[in-house]
Nucleic acid binder design. Structure first.
Ligand code: MN
Ligand code: MN
Ligand code: ZN
Ligand code: ZN
Lengths: 140, 140
DNA sequence: GCCAATTTTGCAACTTTGTTGCAAATGATA
DNA sequence: TATCATTTGCAACAAAGTTGCAAAATTGGC
């Protein structure tokens, strides 16, 4: 049961199990795609304060439960991390797809970000690859 | 002379040559790295209204003079385009490097974004690749 | 289950960022 | 220089994000 999984995940991350955390995690699990802060707020149907949503997203980030996806429209999107992320250490090495029609943002877990040869003296820690285009649901 | 080049570029883009546009273009040319709206405002030493800066950046975007770089910190960065961008058509196919220490954001014009095999049904229009790490000035 | 200690939440007040309408100022053109 | 179109600054606003603090909820031991 999903409720149980949510509680497990919060416990595993050493977070106390609160209504807002449960609800927001549930929203991410149910949403197929990445969500902006604003989307999360809307889906809670005004049950939690804006500030609580901000703080919850921040906490989830720190604990490696969700990760951010940079987009060109100046709005950070958040999506669930996979197993291999942990507190303070994200390993989201997959590409992200942004559909220009429906706006859905998908984690393409199976497609890894290719390695890059940087110029002498540069060191890469993390690479974000965001593909904008048309998703399979929206293609003509 | 740089002043002349700036005027040429504005003319070429069919923009009237105004103080703010000249000054803001100059700021981009002098800055080695990408700038946020806020950076631009600061460097104009309060000579232009915030709204003017917003509108100027927007105009430069539309005319293919600058392009945006998505970042994970929810602030769009802007950088000068190369020759092959034009009104309504950007061709910024290079990767961007964000230094985690000095914060500088560099266009690596010489490093092209690799192509990606997307799943069946997906179509890519534009790919953004942003590398976070340590730049050559900041390496220990 | 109850209690004390700790953590989380909601609220208020605030700052920052971004948008819009409109009149005044400036730039292009002849 | 005069005219017309464009651009700018201002004011007023909306949206996004931050901080301090008291009230409420959660945890863990009894
Ligand atoms: Mn992802
Ligand atoms: Mn660039
Ligand atoms: Zn779509
Ligand atoms: Zn650096």
């Amino acid at each position: 049961m999903v409720e149980e999984q949510i509680i497990q995940l919060l416990r595993k991350s050493q977070l106390s199990v609160t209504d807002s955390r449960r609800k927001i995690l549930e929203i991410f699990i149910q949403a197929g795609s990445a969500l902006a802060h604003h989307d999360v707020e809307e889906k809670t149907s005004e049950r939690y304060d804006r500030v609580t949503v901000y703080r919850t997203l921040q906490t989830f980030m720190e604990k490696g439960i969700i990760h951010t996806i940079p987009t060109t429209d100046n709005s950070i999107k958040y999506a669930l991390c996979k197993e291999d992320c942990a507190e303070g250490h994200h390993h989201d090495n997959h590409i992200h797809f942004v559909c220009e029609i429906c706006g859905a943002i998908t984690c393409m877990d199976e497609i890894h970000v290719p390695t890059i040869n940087l110029p002498e003296g540069y060191h890469a820690n993390q690479i974000n690859m965001v593909v904008n285009g048309i998703c399979k649901n929206c293609k003509a």
